[in-house]
Amino acid sequence: MDTRLRVAVIIGSTRDGRVGESIGTWFVTVAQRRDDVELDVVDLRDFVFPERYPEGVSDDMRRFCSAIGRADGFVVVTPEYNRSFPASLKQAIDFAYDEWHAKPAGFVSYGCRNRGHYAVEALRDVFTELHVMTVRDEVAIDLLALRGDGVPGDEAEIAVRTMLDQLAWWGVALRDARARHPYTE
């Protein structure tokens, strides 16, 4: 049996010209050095969600919820837009419900100067309502301080390790708990 933690890496920005894809790729490259996680990139640009919440569930809504349901934990890659996170990410989060329950989430945020902290704080509130355990440490990237090759430096890699250590601990603990006793709200 594979005991690795199945982690959905959710890339939350869908804007043209976004930085989220390169930050997400960098994160996955660093995270893949670990042997205790199996990563599944869930890029919101790969989904066509309805403009309004529909009466019926679309195929892409089902596909997104399935990816969330399969995961043991999550890492959300998010920019900060006007002291919060993107509407595309909120819309996607709201399509799932039970699939989020009793699982941990970590964050990779980015922005200019403030490094996306406000987006993460807003996401923590949303995930609390969905019964998600958010880990304390986050990876926060100042886009104005990227190295010459456009990626974060060694300090950010250390932050990835710390955040994933916490996510792995909570992920295994909660996976074992869900197996012993299904979660109910």
Rank of each mutant, 00 (worst) to 15 (best):
V28T: 15
V7Y: 02
G24K: 07
F95E: 14
V108Q: 04
A145E: 15
R63V: 02
A31W: 11
F47R: 12
F64Q: 04
S58R: 09
L39C: 02
V160R: 03
G111Q: 11
D43Q: 02
F127Q: 02
L5A: 00
H117M: 12
V75I: 11
F27S: 01
G171R: 05
L123D: 04
G171C: 01
V76M: 09
A119R: 03
M163K: 00
R6W: 10
V48T: 15
E55H: 05
R52K: 11
A156L: 00
G69V: 03
V42R: 04
A87G: 14
W100K: 01
R83M: 08
R178S: 08
Q32S: 15
R18P: 00
R52V: 12
A92W: 04
L164R: 01
A71L: 03
V132K: 02
R45E: 12
V9N: 02
L174D: 11
D142Y: 03
E129H: 11
D2Q: 06
R124V: 09
C65S: 12
R147V: 00
R70S: 08
I10N: 08
D2Y: 00
D125L: 12
R18W: 13
A119F: 10
G153F: 05
P182H: 07
L144W: 14
L144C: 12
V75F: 05
V126G: 03
R113V: 12
Q91S: 13
V75H: 08
V132G: 00
A102R: 13
D149T: 10
A177I: 01
P104T: 08
A92Y: 04
M163V: 00
V37Y: 06
R136W: 10
D16P: 12
R6C: 03
G12F: 05
E99A: 06
G24V: 05
V77K: 04
G153V: 01
K103F: 10
F49G: 06
A122D: 13
G69E: 15
V77T: 04
R62T: 09
Y53P: 13
D36Y: 06
F74A: 04
S88H: 01
A96D: 04
V108R: 01
E38F: 11
T128R: 14
